[in-house]
Nucleic acid binder design. Structure first.
Lengths: 235, 235
DNA sequence: GGCCGTCTGTACGCTCGCGCACAAAATTTG
DNA sequence: CAAATTTTGTGCGCGAGCGTACAGACGGCC
């Protein structure tokens, strides 16, 4: 468990005394693609510190459409707003990439935040990262093309996956970007034609990382930069 | 000044002891349409509690486009994240509708938050409202038509203006919605034709509030509902 | 190996909104 | 009152992405 903790960058940057506030209540859980960690508008009972994998923060509409507003990996926490702001989930959180997380009852986390300023501050800083991502996504979805957004999203995913090859259906991606599946098919072929990726039956391989960063909209870099500036340096 | 304070709903719900923490440092300021209260990525020096008027939270892109991700009026605070999260502005805040506000140096506010849990909590709750709006805008910009978004935006503006008639150029609206000016022209004519508004040379008059709520996307109602649930009842 | 379900490539018409351009109307300025 | 500026109405071609549909390709399962 002690070893697990260092895999989450948010926890990693806390002092032992602060960690002690929640350590006993941490429980390691598997996250599988498709798992819903929190439903939109429901009460947040558990908070997750990912050690690997990726979780999407999704905004759902009444018509049943969904759109990704932020992505969370081992640099952050899923459902942290329960401890920092309100105890109700603004977005739905869904596992996009298999991984593992340390789960803790939100009541424990709220208590830890009230006892330790540092703890509270770490949570708040990560909340700021999520807020920034939501704002950036707002601009991105309004102003940027499907191809650029696909590129951006694959770069983020690549960062979380930490491998150059991974499985992803076009269906899944289309839900993240809020476009239809065949638009993803066309855009993916553009990227493949440009020699940036290979895409075959749900297996995507990143070939030219630099080329993709050029093809992606500014949003990828902006999010990364804000994270670097806002989160403590990992040691 | 005491009388002014009750005009801001966030301050109105604080106890006298909590207000005393900032009261001496509050300064009444005029807000004029176009005024930039905070530039994106700059340090937040002052925080504003609007008493009237409206302020937009805008996300700017490198290409010079802008898009509104949230709107703030006398129910909230502009730049509150300086006290709650980071001291850097994620978005640019611009006055959209003339009004007045109580300004306070952010250092004073940060101190007040550290001294009073209630104060801190009120700020955090409003931050949640802004985060929710950013998420909702993300979905809205990606999935809803210009006409529905125009309707939504006019309803929000109507709430802040507290009059049925107001001045607004199509140019301004087009920047809020992230569409081009002539698209606004077309959409506005649709609404006028449907008998919902009259629009003549920058003077807009709301004729059929209920009809507009039907025409607007769900986002208007969702934001209002979340605000009702999250902010304390006004007494 | 054969069947079936999932995932993908692609095509076609259509709508929405862009990009641009320009004239008309109203307001401001000299 | 005339000129300049701002704001709006509108038209037209165009491209992006939707909605839908369908066939082919692949993988899993028996």
């Amino acid at each position: 468990m002690r070893n697990d903790i260092t895999r989450n960058r948010l926890l990693q940057n806390l002092d032992p005394a602060e960690l002690a506030l929640i350590e006993k209540n941490l429980k390691s859980v598997e996250m599988h693609t498709g798992d819903v960690l929190h439903s939109q508008r429901s009460r947040i009972e558990k908070v997750y510190f990912p050690l690997s994998g990726m979780v999407s923060s999704l905004m759902m509409t009444d018509e049943g459409d969904a759109i990704e507003t932020a992505a969370i990996g081992r640099e952050g926490v899923v459902g942290g707003s329960a401890a920092v702001i309100t105890d109700t989930a603004i977005t739905q959180t869904v596992v996009q990439l298999d991984g593992r997380a340390l789960a803790v009852p939100s009541s424990i986390l709220v208590e830890a935040c009230s006892k330790s300023m540092n703890f509270h501050d770490a949570m708040r800083r990560y909340e700021a990262v999520l807020t920034m991502q939501a704002n950036q996504s707002s601009a991105c979805h309004a102003l940027h093309s499907v191809a650029a957004r696909l590129c951006r999203w694959l770069l983020h995913f690549h960062d979380f996956a930490e491998t150059d090859e991974f499985s992803l259906t076009q269906e899944t991606i289309s839900h993240m970007l809020g476009v239809r599946r065949s638009s993803v098919s066309v855009a993916a072929h553009e990227l493949q034609h440009a020699g940036l990726i290979t895409y075959s039956r749900g297996r995507i391989q990143i070939l030219d990382r630099e080329g993709m960063e050029e093809c992606a909209c500014e949003c990828y870099g902006a999010v990364r930069k804000f994270m670097e500036e806002t989160l403590p340096r990992h040691h």
